[in-house]
């Protein structure tokens, strides 16, 4: 993509590239991330947002809930849903904190 992407487009590309960085797949099969690599991704790329990613059981639960078709592999759609699940509560929190500062002024 050309250099005049918006900030938001850059952000989406980062998230897509991040999936591809950890995903593997051979020729015709769509790329997937294994649970093991997914855990690695969480602890490397989201270590500030998920402080408990070191907790294997928590990460497993997250992946289990996410893996809708139970094949042990995470598709792009499943990956996207998970990141959304992480981002949603953070969005609420940021908004609440903004409200909080307004009220205290």
């Amino acid at each position: 993509m050309s250099g005049n992407s918006s900030e938001l487009e850059w952000a989406l590309q980062v998230l897509v590239k991040n999936f591809d960085k950890y995903a593997s797949g051979c020729c015709k099969k769509p790329r997937r991330i294994s649970k093991k690599d997914f855990r690695k991704m969480l602890s490397r790329e989201l270590n500030h947002m998920l402080t408990d990613t070191g907790n294997k059981r928590a990460a497993d639960k997250l992946i289990c809930d996410l893996d809708e078709n139970k094949d042990g592999l995470i598709s792009f759609e499943e990956y996207w849903t998970l990141i959304g699940g992480i981002a949603g509560p953070i969005a609420c929190l940021i908004r609440q904190q903004e409200h909080g500062t307004k009220f205290t002024k």
Binding site: E7, L8, W10, A11, L12, V14, L15, N18, R44, E45, L46, N47, H48, M49, L50, T51, D52, I83, I86, A87, P89, I90, A91, L93, I94, Q97
Partner: peptide
């Protein structure tokens, strides 16, 4: 999930990974 912690760290964008910064941009928009 340690959201409080992450929000504190959030101010120091130096520490965030690209993926985290990207998520922030999506939220900010």
């Amino acid at each position: 999930m340690g959201q409080c912690h992450c929000h504190k760290k959030r101010k120091d964008s130096q520490e965030l990974t690209d993926v985290e910064r990207a998520i922030e941009i999506v939220i900010n928009n």
